[in-house]
Design a protein around this nucleic acid. Structure first.
Lengths: 100, 100
DNA sequence: CAAGCATATTCCGTGAGTGGAATATGTTTT
DNA sequence: AAAACATATTCCACTCACGGAATATGCTTG
């Protein structure tokens, strides 16, 4: 599953936001999200398949942490559009490309 | 439909990429994408609902252009994660926050 | 080894998004 | 007004992602 579809789900974005605080066991995420445990586990599986989270196993617990690599790729994708809102070009900018 | 779900579809990302070249009529997009015209029209409708494209009507033609506002919001969302790959913090960074 | 805890997996029903085909709407031209 | 063109809309079938419930796996403790 691609990064785009992985972050399309609001629950998964909530999980990523929680992981900004640092590595956390699955149970903590379940409590914080107030969702059924299997539901959270499935979303974590999707995030892992997308490479967005890593697991560290310690006994019965799985500690999840952010893996920012796919987000860095998303940033590169977004960079192609950054000129359109960063002040260099406004909504009419494309008309003016050949104006000099 | 949110920006996240709007850009989750690869066809719609292709459309956005084409619009980086500037405003274009729907027919040009149909030709470039090599997809059935109704298919493209439906994707354009989704992009418009998400605020990602604007329409300028000129006779029978509809000229589509990028509206970068939602992408700027996506950039703000992404900015919350930028510290995780920008060199200040690596994958272990969250452990080291209080290390000084 | 039995019990309990933490987490993952499977099964199932359902709703949303997608593509294809056909058709409709609106505009220009003759 | 009819025809031709550009684009949008509707209808339909199908896949897929999501949630809920039940169950399985794996580790630990007594």
């Amino acid at each position: 599953m691609s990064t785009f579809t992985a972050i399309a789900d609001p629950v998964r974005r909530d999980i990523l936001a929680l992981l900004r605080r640092g590595e956390q066991p699955a149970g903590t995420l379940v409590d914080a999200l107030a969702l059924p445990q299997p539901n959270v586990s499935k979303h974590l599986k999707v995030l892992r398949a997308a490479g967005l989270v890593r697991i560290r196993v310690d006994g019965p617990r799985r500690f999840y942490s952010l893996d920012p690599a796919p987000l860095a790729e998303l940033d590169e994708w977004l960079a192609q559009y950054r000129e359109f809102w960063s002040g260099k070009l406004d909504a009419f900018g494309d008309h003016l490309k050949r104006s000099d």
